[in-house]
Design a protein around this nucleic acid. Structure first.
Lengths: 301, 301
DNA sequence: TATTTGTTTTGTCCTAGACAAACAGGACGT
DNA sequence: ACGTCCTGTTTGTCTAGGACAAAACAAATA
């Protein structure tokens, strides 16, 4: 069935490794070594693409490409250790609770998952639902994905269903426009929206006026939107997968295009290791977000 | 305020023009001509980035880069004519009806827009709401964006709010699993999800079992998902903005990784001009989608 | 009016060199 | 033992220009 080969653009699309990197690896490490078509262009067999995808996943986990490429295929599968620190293991206490939910996703039972989540939402209320269910669940799905026990499409299904639940819950909230006006979005190349939705849920509960613009807004457009909406705060989300080295530069550029009085907040797993800066306020946890909101209100009372 | 300059990666991110194209244009047409930093790397001023974004928008409208670059800045603004054909003008009859909705978006009044849409949903019912409101509205927003009367962030706001409405409506439907199992997603580089949601709403109304996987699934993952979910149909969406030349190849590759018995349907504005193929069934309108569903059921009775 | 044929435009791919930012590891001082 | 500075290595991204094929257009034919 898999007689198809991939050209370099298709490999970039499917692995997330840029064409430059693919060519560089071939030059430096001797892998991947695609065959060539009549036209001298690279043709990657599906087998090499699969290996590249695995390598990319392990790189996102903190491994280095030089080592990975030197490692024979069989050993790669067993390298899926923890990101760096052995991780806070108190979370495993919840495993029993949340494990059922993960199992439902793993079984591809969308209806049952939604049902179970709705029950939790009703029992916990939105705030605790976000903080005690959605947030740890998201983290666990990320870990499951890292260690290979979740497929990409299972993670997509989880994300899609959870997005719906949160949006549904947010929609039922009254739009009490008392707090600051918060514009929620992400930069180009950052498609993850779950973190933004969690923050939106919490902020909306607090009565802030949230303006959700979806993901992947060009920087200059974010500036225009902030101006047009008279936003008090622009809140960005960076996932763990976002290339961290780019974040400081992005925040600096964005700070330049935003009105002076508009605050810039950056949150999500991607900013935990970023050095503090004057360009933006870094928010690493949901509690931080609520604290920042309270703080803003105190200063603008 | 705009003293910042953009490196070539930032310009690619913000304009959607690849680095290769940016360098090629500089070589061929002499525009853009960025300054260089100490390191000999390109530094694009914000002014050139803006011009590039405008040019890109006009290209998506069907103009050719060679002409656009030769045109002085002032004339560019007035080039926002129709895509190619003068367009079906019976749509303008609805302008009065839908115009109010567009106005609300243009005024950035999210709450009023949601309210008005909910009213229409209640009045029309979901099927007619999708076909007579959401679909033409989406098209009109696209046109407004093309002719420059909508900003990018206004389109984002529209999309985000409308997504929420549709998802909310879908969530309230009973999950009567009688029809085929339909897996809904899009390929990498195709982030638009509104079309998928419209189809999902219609299919769910018909009692089909929809599995929404969100957007941007790698091809091999789509294959795995289809297998895991025992999908009868894989439905892809291609927006008008998707590079049409890539579609036939994508469909062919995807056909190779899908199980034999799984049907492949491709729909959305991007496929209207694609030549018929054996790899997939091309679906250009929402009515087509419903017809295809009925047809499938007839053949699998 | 349609369809075929040539020509121009345009994007993508190629090679190969250079460099700076990130990282790892060791030496050093507290 | 722990943190800090330095140095060499690893790694990604940028640069330059050349080549070619596929798309878009123009012209000429049936």
């Amino acid at each position: 069935m898999n007689t198809a080969t991939f050209n370099i653009a298709a490999v970039e699309r499917d692995t997330g490794l840029s064409k430059d990197v693919l060519r560089m690896w071939e030059r430096r490490y001797g892998f991947p070594v695609p065959s060539r078509d009549n036209n001298g262009e690279r043709c990657y067999p599906a087998e090499q693409v699969d290996r590249l995808r695995l390598i990319k996943r392990l790189m996102d986990l903190g491994h280095r490409p030089g080592k990975l490429i030197a490692t024979p295929q069989e050993e790669l599968g067993s390298l899926t250790s923890r990101r760096s620190k052995p991780a806070v293991k108190d979370a495993s206490a919840d495993d029993g609770e949340l494990g059922e939910l993960l199992t439902l996703i793993k079984q591809h039972d969308a209806a049952a998952y939604q049902q179970a989540m709705l029950q939790r939402l009703a029992r916990q209320g939105l705030q605790r639902f976000v903080q005690d269910t959605v947030s740890p669940l998201t983290r666990q799905v990320g870990e499951k994905w890292e260690d290979g026990s979740f497929e990409v499409f299972e993670e997509h299904l989880f994300t899609e269903l959870t997005k719906r639940l949160l949006r549904q819950a947010i929609a039922t909230l009254p739009g009490g426009p008392r707090g600051p006006r918060v514009l929620l979005t992400s930069v180009p190349e950052e498609p993850h929206v779950l973190g933004l939705l969690m923050v939106e849920a919490l902020f909306a509960l607090e009565g802030a006026e949230c303006i959700p613009l979806g993901t992947q807004m060009p920087l200059l457009e974010i500036g225009r939107a902030a101006q047009a909406h008279q936003a008090d705060i622009v809140a960005l989300s960076f996932s763990l997968a976002f290339p961290q080295r780019q974040i400081p530069g992005l925040l600096q550029q964005l700070r330049l295009v935003l009105p002076e009085k508009t605050a810039l907040w950056a949150g999500g797993g991607g900013v935990t290791r970023i050095a503090r800066t004057d360009d933006a306020e870094l928010i690493t946890t949901l509690d931080d977000a609520l604290a920042a909101l309270a703080n803003w209100r105190a200063q603008h009372a």
